[in-house]
């Protein structure tokens, strides 16, 4: 059974202009309880890789540059 690529809109947004992951910062990736954020190998910026969000906000609260915004997942907003 082959797997499909079904798209979903993700709740966590990263402002790439503010994100300093390319300087070595991994705070948002480190603190996420569900471990859904990663640093993109393409852009060297943080992004939400897995749509598995509890909209709890440590990523946003702990980001040193205010680059992260947590929105309410579409299915429940």
């Amino acid at each position: 059974m082959p797997l499909a690529n079904t798209s979903t809109t993700v709740p966590v947004l990263v402002d790439e202009g503010k994100c300093i992951a390319d300087k070595g910062c991994t705070v948002c990736v480190d603190v996420c309880p569900l471990d859904v954020l990663r640093i993109s190998e393409l852009t060297n910026k943080a992004y939400m890789k897995f749509d598995e969000c509890w909209y709890c906000m440590p990523c946003e609260a702990d980001c040193p540059t205010g680059a992260v915004t947590v929105n309410i997942p579409y299915l429940l907003k």
């Binding site: 598995e52 997942p73 299915l75 429940l76």
Partner: peptide
């Protein structure tokens, strides 16, 4: 399953 159908939209921390 929460009524929203979102697997991680739980009352408890979904972890």
């Amino acid at each position: 399953l929460p009524t929203s159908g979102y697997l991680y939209g739980t009352y408890e921390n979904a972890a």
